[in-house]
């Protein structure tokens, strides 16, 4: 898949290597739909990484650190060979795995040796030139709040939102934003007229895969986040990671069951909110794919006529 637009001034526009990752092709599909729709509306040129593989995420790291690193090195090499040296990863876990791989190869001779079993030294050198970008980093730095402000055509139909950055986008490689109180997502949303709630849990863990393994522990982590967000007046939570979105969106009924407190609020991806401001269609942004807060989503985005449609 590729996307591009006619450059306005005749120069060749910068092309990004788009690395979706596994989650975005499945449960996080709305993230991909909305991000690519925003790219289309803004004329950002991108190219999906050919034959990309798993990033070697934390579950892999748990069993074999070397192989996990090899998988990321493989993806970085594909990006280098494609000529588009900025690799955009919307998933925070993918972003971290790619950054970690680069860091390991640059700083640790032992890891260089392990990855060296898999690719020649020249390729190892080459991947140092690939720049790993999180989708938020790319949207904020390369496009920026003022460009979004200038292009925004549609007012926000809903209430306040809480910006949830999650863990691995800002730690331990905090190039995306600062770890303490990240603001880039807040700034982008405020630029397009979305009211943002003050919320101190921006980078607290969502429970990760514990929602599937140690269910009550995982669900409670999400519960703590939502409880505070609601208390601070947020009517929706905006995320930048498919796992964060999944945990907060899918398990609200479980939270209600275990605590007796009722939760039913929409959990969106950042480009869904930005795309709405740019005038995109609600289906093109995947806004019909939410599990929780479905009623709110329809009221805000679908309009009365489309209200009856479903999945």
């Amino acid at each position: 898949m590729t996307g591009s637009s006619a450059p306005a001034n005749g120069t060749k526009p910068k092309q990004y290597s788009y690395y979706p990752g596994c989650a975005i092709k499945g449960t996080g599909i709305a993230y991909e739909e909305s991000l690519l729709e925003v790219y289309r509306l803004l004329g950002v040129a991108w190219q999906e990484l050919t034959d990309w593989s798993c990033c070697g995420a934390q579950a892999y790291m748990t069993v074999d650190a070397g192989q996990s690193c090899m998988l990321s090195a493989r993806n970085l090499r594909i990006a280098y060979q494609s000529g588009s040296h900025d690799i955009v990863a919307p998933c925070s876990a993918c972003y971290l795995a790619l950054r970690k791989c680069k860091d390991y190869v640059e700083r640790y001779p032992r890891m260089r040796e392990v990855v060296g079993d898999f690719m020649p030294a020249s390729d190892l050198q080459a991947i140092a030139n690939v720049r790993v970008r999180h989708a938020l980093d790319m949207l904020y730095v390369d496009i920026g709040p003022s460009a979004f402000r200038a292009r925004a055509t549609r007012p926000w139909p809903g209430g306040k939102v809480a910006c949830y950055y999650g863990c691995q986008a800002v730690r331990p490689y905090s190039e995306v934003d600062r770890d303490g109180n990240p603001m880039r997502m807040d700034e982008l949303l405020e630029a397009v007229g979305v009211p943002v709630a003050q919320w101190p849990l921006k980078t607290k863990c969502c429970g990760s895969s514990h929602t599937g393994t140690l269910h009550e522990v995982g669900v409670r982590m999400g519960y703590l986040l939502l409880k505070e967000a609601v208390r601070r007046g947020a009517e929706a939570v905006i995320t930048i990671c498919p796992l964060c979105q999944f945990n907060l969106d899918v398990y609200q009924k479980d939270m209600t069951r275990s605590t007796g407190e009722s939760f039913d609020i929409p959990i969106l991806f950042l480009p869904q909110a930005l795309g709405w401001a740019l005038g995109a269609d609600h289906r093109a942004l995947g806004l019909h794919r939410g599990i929780s807060g479905a009623e709110t989503l329809r009221r805000w985005f679908a309009g009365p006529r489309e209200g009856a449609s479903d999945g």
């Binding site: 596994c22 989650a23 092709k25 499945g26 449960t27 593989s53 798993c54 070697g56 995420a57 579950a59 892999y60 748990t62 069993v63 074999d64 192989q67 998988l71 895969s209 514990h210 599937g212 393994t213 140690l214």
Partner: peptide, 23 residues
């Protein structure tokens, strides 16, 4: 114990297919 089982299954899936499937 589900946590290491998840890691094991994840790794087997990626080793044989190159990608993982949530489902």
């Amino acid at each position: 114990f589900a946590v290491p089982v998840l890691s094991d299954e994840f790794m087997n899936m990626v080793r044989t297919r190159g990608r993982s499937s949530d489902f």
